[in-house]
């Protein structure tokens, strides 16, 4: 893998929109071309090189490309948005829409991400070691489908409406999740190892979708019904994957746990599941 290093210089006060920062858009380009990639500040178009020192090498194809950003990008939007291959590592925080609509490859953020990270993600792996903002992996307004594939792993807490309108893929939250987790979900899997605020799974239809909660739940909607307490075999598969392939150590602790199973949202005739680990 060829590594390209981007180091933020003085970033503008206004948000910088930089969907140009993906392995896809730098692969096959010279450093000079990379520096000339457009970025947007307010109503102006600027060059990537105006705000980032660019060093290292570019690869022929995105899948051989590693892009590493060293420095805080908390006000930089769209980092890794739409990427299809390769790796992108940010050592620091990122602004809104990080990894939105990404289709493949790996985007790894050591800090926190703002709202809409991984929104409408289709594939690939998005790791956020810190916290994520609102609408993590959600559908953009009006869209009937949020995540349709891929995996998001968040080390910290997440805001409102994480996994809204989820269809496929996995969302793993190691910290706490705020309200409306998995609202309108219709497929896909959500795992939360911290606490979950109320209204999780609101208006979820089902289609195989579930939310597994390991750290407790503030409350369950009145439109979810308690079915049983059991040890679901199927969950073992996911938990092993989380532990062995995604490095979520905590998952290993629940391999033999019992879960309370709730089904809903019956307000919409849904068959989604909420599984809550018994302490």
């Amino acid at each position: 893998m060829k590594e390209l290093m981007l180091t933020p210089k003085k970033l503008p006060d206004l948000p910088l929109e930089a969907e140009a920062i993906t392995p896809d858009s730098v692969a096959g380009k010279t450093l000079k071309e990379v520096k000339s990639l457009p970025v947007y500040v307010g109503n102006t178009v600027q060059k990537l090189g105006d705000y980032f020192d660019v060093k290292g090498e570019t690869a022929e194809t995105p899948s051989d490309q590693l892009v590493a950003i060293q420095g805080e990008c908390g006000n930089v939007k769209y980092i890794g948005a739409g990427m299809t291959a390769g790796r992108l590592i940010v050592e620091g925080c990122v602004g809104m829409h990080a990894g939105a609509e990404m289709e493949g490859g790996e985007l790894s953020i050591t800090g926190s991400a703002s709202n809409w990270a991984g929104a409408e993600m289709k594939g690939g792996l998005l790791r956020i070691q810190g916290d994520a903002g609102h609408q993590l992996g959600a559908a953009y307004r009006g869209s009937p489908e949020g995540m349709t594939g891929g995996v998001i792993v968040v080390g910290g807490d997440v805001g409102l409406e994480a996994g809204a309108f989820m269809r496929r893929g996995m969302l793993i939250i190691q910290g706490d999740a705020d309200s409306f987790l998995g609202v309108h979900m219709n497929g896909g899997e959500i795992f939360v190892f911290g606490n979950v605020a109320r209204r999780l799974g609101a208006e979820a239809k089902g289609n195989g979708g579930f939310i597994a909660c390991f750290g407790g739940v503030e409350s369950i909607l009145p439109t979810y019904v308690y079915d049983t307490t059991f040890r679901p075999d199927f969950l073992k598969l996911y938990l092993r994957q989380l532990r062995d392939q995604l490095g979520v150590e905590a998952a290993g602790e629940y391999l033999d746990a019992s879960f309370r199973r709730y089904r809903g949202d019956i307000a919409v005739g849904g068959t989604a599941e909420i599984l809550i680990a018994e302490p």
Partner: peptide
Amino acid sequence: LMRPEDHR
């Protein structure tokens, strides 16, 4: 009004 996803 109802279809921002269509416009996008």
